[in-house]
């Protein structure tokens, strides 16, 4: 019998994750979301390009207008603007592949189910009673979830890349590739920090149901709170830059194609690391101290 070390914990966790149906279901749903996003871009762009350009009889009112001969259509400016909007959406779909696939949402569900099930089924109990080191168990689960996040991110990127290339072959430049890699890396980092928070919640709750409930609740509360705060700050004319340091607010910076400022870089690199470190610390500390159910 070999020693019960980290590698063995990891291989067992990966085996159990492989057997989890939710992993495949999430993959299929992500693929559908990506397809849907690209479909919306293509269909929207095609529809707009087919709409007739007319000169407004009564001045440009925006939207659908009617010329002096009674033909309906949109103005040239509006058509150009809308095509540009769909093109940008198309390009963003590639840069924000993880976001359009809602990786953080699916990872939240899978991490809660995976860790919760291991607790409620008694697998964690069995491993601890077999002398497995609790720190190894925790980091093995963290690494398993991190591998899952990376796999989903790569899957989303590849799928978005393939779909993007159908319409935009030949337009992708070296500079775009650099931006793409930066966006992908930052997005992955943010997703890893979010995953760490959910993993911590799963280790605190120790059951699939309660950890899912707490995670979804926390997410909703944070999103609503952040929206309310930013709206209030905007209305009152205050600076909103600090908002990007708040929880779950780094993703928009990570997928931005514009050149990042030092503050933005700090928010998108330091904050995920802080959240990751804090959640690992709390999760591991609790797991080490508490009795195993």
């Amino acid at each position: 019998m070999k020693n019960n070390d980290f590698a063995m914990c990891l291989s067992a966790d990966l085996f159990r994750l492989k057997k989890l149906k939710s992993v495949i279901v999430a993959l299929i749903l992500m693929a559908l979301l990506i397809l849907l996003t690209f479909a919306v871009c293509w269909i929207g762009s095609n529809l707009i390009s087919r709409v007739d350009v007319v000169e407004s009889a009564d001045g440009d009112l925006g939207g659908v207008i009617v010329d002096e001969n009674g033909n309906a259509g949109i103005s040239q400016e509006e058509k150009t603007a809308m095509i540009a909007m769909f093109d940008e959406m198309n390009e963003n779909s590639l840069m924000a592949s993880g976001s359009i696939a809602s990786i953080e949402f699916f990872v939240m569900i899978i991490v809660c189910i995976f860790v919760g099930k291991d607790f409620s089924n008694g697998t964690v109990r069995l491993n601890v009673s077999r002398g497995a080191n609790r720190t190894h168990i925790f980091f093995s689960k963290w690494l398993t979830a991190a591998i899952l996040v990376t796999f989903y991110s790569v899957f989303a990127l590849v799928m978005c890349g393939i779909l993007y290339s159908f319409k935009n072959s030949g337009t992708f430049r070296a500079h775009d590739f650099g931006v793409l890699m930066r966006c992908f890396s930052l997005e992955l980092l943010v997703n890893l920090s979010i995953m760490s928070v959910f993993l911590m919640i799963a280790f605190l709750c120790r059951s699939s149901g309660s950890s899912l409930g707490v995670s979804i609740g926390l997410w909703l509360v944070l999103e609503i709170a952040m929206s309310v705060i930013s709206t209030v700050v905007e209305i009152s004319g205050g600076a909103t830059e600090w908002m990007m340091f708040m929880p779950l607010q780094q993703m928009s910076v990570a997928i931005s194609t514009a050149k990042l400022t030092a503050t933005e870089l700090c928010a998108v690199i330091i904050m995920p690391l802080v959240y990751m470190g804090a959640s690992i610390g709390i999760g591991l500390g609790t797991f080490l101290k508490r009795d195993v159910k």
């Binding site: 019998m1 070999k2 020693n3 019960n4 070390d5 063995m8 914990c9 291989s11 067992a12 085996f15 159990r16 057997k19 989890l20 149906k21 099930k117 089924n121 697998t123 069995l126 491993n127 077999r130 497995a132």
Partner: peptide, 18 residues
């Protein structure tokens, strides 16, 4: 693990033990 077969359950724990 209720979603796995008997053999898979055995494998899952066996991997942990090496």
């Amino acid at each position: 693990a209720l979603h796995m077969s008997a053999m898979d359950n055995m494998k899952s724990i066996a991997l942990n033990i090496g």
